[in-house]
Design a protein around this nucleic acid. Structure first.
Lengths: 151, 151
DNA sequence: GTTGATGCAAATCATTTGCATATTC
DNA sequence: GAATATGCAAATGATTTGCATCAAC
């Protein structure tokens, strides 16, 4: 957050919304995660500062932030949604099926693929937050070493 | 389905489950979509044949099918889950943001990207059902012709 | 002072579960 | 006949909403 504070307050205004203490707290909570968070985590984090904040306020604020594009919402595919501060460059997520770990990657590798798709299918991909599942380095190695039966 | 009938019944058996009329209907309903369907559509389709089938049965059957990998569940990112009969080759989905149309693409284009990710990030992508959003050919053209202000 | 935001509680929606009954094997 | 699957109804859990009150402008 820090210097961003000024920024989001302006955006809020421009869209005709008010800058409130709870919205600041909620946005802070999203930033604090520095990566992805769930609604639950945001709620918990905010609660640590102010016990009176209601879940509905979190929902409402998060929706607003997403609408204003201050926050991105990415679907993990496992049902829950990840929220995160909107960064400048598009990026994507790798989620490990085994350990559940997540990492971000830039969109350079994907861009080529997007171009391919565009050329071959006439479809301009504009997904700026892809979530891909698979196995991270550690888990691949783990599997290679201890030969897993039936896998 | 047709000849597949034999196939799924065997798989069912092998896993120690029973072949019931409602499961057949539900699997048929998924096949009938020939593409992706939602639970709601499956329910509606099944209901047309048998009004007594309960939603819970649909949920249970679909879970079972996914577990046995007879049916794939793909997350659209918009909250609802698409179900579809498991095909032989992996493929992915393109969903148009403007018209809502969907198309399937093979995974050739993606495989290269997966390899890239693997090389650069040590992450083995195993997503066999990516859903990507963007603009289909028609909608891209539509936008180009009628110059859309601010876009 | 107005208007919009909040907290609370109740409503809603999708999904799951317990259990008696019906069905498959 | 024994065991599993089904339909029903009730439980759950996450998200949303109505409304009186409170805070921002």
């Amino acid at each position: 957050m820090t210097h961003q504070s000024l920024h989001w307050e302006k955006e809020m205004w421009a869209a005709g919304h008010r800058v409130t203490r709870q919205r600041a707290l909620i946005l802070d909570a999203v930033c604090a995660a520095d990566g992805h968070t769930s609604i639950g985590e945001v709620y918990a984090r905010v609660r640590r500062v102010d016990t009176t904040i209601d879940r509905s306020t979190i929902y409402r604020a998060l929706h607003l932030f997403v609408e204003l594009e201050l926050v991105l919402a990415a679907d993990t595919g496992s049902g829950d949604i990840l929220y995160e501060i909107r960064k400048l460059q598009p990026h994507h997520h790798l989620v490990c099926r085994d350990c559940g770990g997540e990492q971000e990657i830039g969109d350079a590798a994907l861009r080529m693929m997007f171009d391919d798709v565009s050329r071959q299918h006439g479809f301009r991909v504009e997904t700026d937050h892809l979530v891909m599942f698979g196995l991270c380095h550690e888990c691949v190695r783990a599997r290679e070493h201890h030969v897993v039966p039936g896998t």
